[in-house]
Each structure stands twice: as C-alpha cells, then as structure tokens.
C-alpha cells in the first residue's frame, strides 16, 4: 500500500533520520532480491564490478565489517579493509585527512564506523565518495535498523501495528536510535525499557512508550529486541552490577512467556549471555538472531547497490 521510491536521494546513508518511508521500502524490497543471490550456487552478481568500496573502521568490529565485506564481494566490488585504532589521547592524522587520502584511489563508497557521533556527517560533507554509516558513536547504525526491520517483516509479514519491545542500554545504543526511528516511521508500537539511568530524554516526543518495568514492555509483544550491555556502563555507575541487571531487565524464558506465543526474539550481537539475555532464550525456537545476520548481508547488498550500482556515483578517476 505504501509507496516505494525509485531511487535513494543523495549519495550517502548517514541515518534513518534522513530516509522517508518510500526509500525504506525500496531498500527492504531490494534486499529481498539480494537475499536470493545468497541461495545460488555462484553467490555473485557483477553489479559493482570495477568499483572500489573501502571499509574504514575506527572502532573494532568483526561482525559488521565481515557482513559488509561479504555484501561487497557478492556484488563483485573490489574491497579494502582499513582498521585504524584511534585513541582520544593520541592525536595522529585527522579524520578528514585520513578520508581525503583514501579518496585518491577513487572509491565509490566508504563504509565508516567511528566512535564519535556525527563523524559520518563530517565525511559526507567533505568527500565525493558515498558514505555509508556503519555506526557513529551513540548516534545511529542505520543498516542494523534496516536489517532488523527486514527480519521482522519477513517473519511477521508487516511492521505496522506490531508491539515491539526494546530492552537495554537505550541511552548509549545507536542500534536503539536507528530502530525506533525506522519502526515508528513504519507504524509499529514501540515499548522501550531500561534502567532510569540509561533512559534518554524525550522518548514520548518520538511516539515511544518508555517504562522501567520489563513485564510491561514485553506483555503481548510481537517482537522483543535485546540490546547489548557494555561493561563500561557498570563502571560508570549506571547500575550496580551485571547480576542485578539480569535480575531486573534480563530476558528470561518466564518473561518471554508474557509476550505473544509467536513472538520473535532479536539481538544485534554480540550477546552477553546471562547479562541481557538468558542462553535458553538466545538459543530457543523464537530466536531469530542468526536470521538477522543472514539478512544483514542482503540489506547491505541492497544499500550498496542503490547507492553505487546505478553508475551515477562513479567517482572520476
């Protein structure tokens, strides 16, 4: 029923905030076709042949980086992985200088992950290459949001009207931010839950219900999304201990039973078993965590194709 755009505006994917519903639908529909490529004997199409894609990661990541790398290779692109350890203490080369130096090899796209919110926006303004945000600070992780939406849509047939619970460190989670922007645009009913010390202000302005009670969030939910808790948060005094976190907010089989019988359990990974999620839940029949990984490749192929596959994004050598 809703419209699907025929192309994406702009050369970059910086955040869900910049996408409208028709563009989101375009990406998800294209990802469906891309998912089929993964089922072929030869898992390759020539769409990005001769184009260079650089994975520029300033934060360590195996999962997201390999997902992008597979997606790029399946589209026949030439990939380059660059991992830069950036410390807030050591100054070294600036972000802009690093990127402009890489532009010299004329990449069509740079996939960038960085510890500072807004880093991708800075690069998008300065570089000719298309910038795909693979996670900037605590701001957004748009391809994660898209693959989560794809997974929900695949399992449930739709997103509008679903009750979706998201539980965890909401304040620092870029996955959370991308997801609420995306799922509310598609008409879902979001219940966000976490400790009050990790609750961002203004959720009601975004049409999201906020609660500190997990039972309330997962009651009757169609999908439950668990977010990762990072150890540093405990050192920051946001909550007293991991044990207490699990008792109050952890996803246990008992809590899952409060949701709908066909509810799905999601997690962006990597999981902390026994902290935000019990093993039985992570490995149980309702878990779609591994599907998320598969879908991640398809969604990233779709994004790369839509940004660079049209020929318009050719960077003059």
């Amino acid at each position: 029923m809703s419209e699907t755009a025929s192309r994406l505006r702009g050369k970059d994917l910086l955040g869900i905030a910049d996408l409208d519903v028709s563009e989101i639908n375009l990406i998800l529909d294209t990802a469906e076709a891309m998912k089929e490529v993964a089922s072929r004997p030869i898992k390759k199409v020539p769409t990005l042949r001769g184009k260079t894609v650089i994975n520029l990661f300033f934060e360590p990541s195996t999962r997201t980086r390999t997902s992008f790398e597979i997606a790029e290779k399946r589209l026949s692109a030439d990939t380059l992985n660059i991992a830069i350890a950036m410390s807030s203490v050591v100054k070294g080369e600036t972000l802009i200088d690093t990127a402009l130096n890489l532009e010299a090899i004329a990449p069509a796209i740079m996939v960038v992950r960085h510890a500072s919110s807004g880093a991708c926006h800075l690069l998008a303004r300065t570089c000719r290459a298309g910038i795909v945000n693979a996670g900037d600070g605590t701001h957004e992780h748009p391809t994660q949001g898209l693959l989560d939406a794809f997974t929900i849509r695949e399992r449930k047939g739709r997103i509008a009207g679903l009750k979706i619970a998201i539980v965890g460190d909401l304040l620092h989670s870029r996955v959370f931010r991308s997801n609420i922007l995306l799922l509310t645009k598609l008409g879902a009913d979001i219940w966000a839950c976490g400790p009050p010390t990790l609750m961002p202000p203004g959720l009601d302005r975004l049409g999201v219900h906020a609660t500190t009670r997990v039972d309330e969030a997962v009651d009757g939910a169609d999908a439950i999304m668990m977010l990762r808790i990072q150890l540093e948060r405990m050192q920051g005094g946001f909550f007293p201990s991991l044990r207490e976190y699990f008792t109050v907010f952890g996803m246990t089989p008992e809590r899952v039973r409060l949701a709908k019988p066909d509810a799905i359990i999601m997690h962006p990974g990597p999981m902390n078993r026994g902290v935000e999620i019990a093993s039985e839940v992570a490995d149980g029949p309702a878990s779609v965590i591994l599907d998320q990984v598969t879908n991640g490749v398809a969604v990233r192929m779709a994004v790369l194709y839509l940004l660079a596959g049209g020929g318009e994004n050719e960077v003059a050598a």
Binding site: S6, L26, D29, A33, M34, A302, Y305
Partner: peptide, 8 residues
C-alpha cells in the same frame, strides 16, 4: 526510473 530489483 531505476527499476526495482526483483527476485530471480
């Protein structure tokens, strides 16, 4: 306009 990619 760029056609949507469909499944094979």
């Amino acid at each position: 306009p760029q056609p949507i990619v469909r499944r094979t």
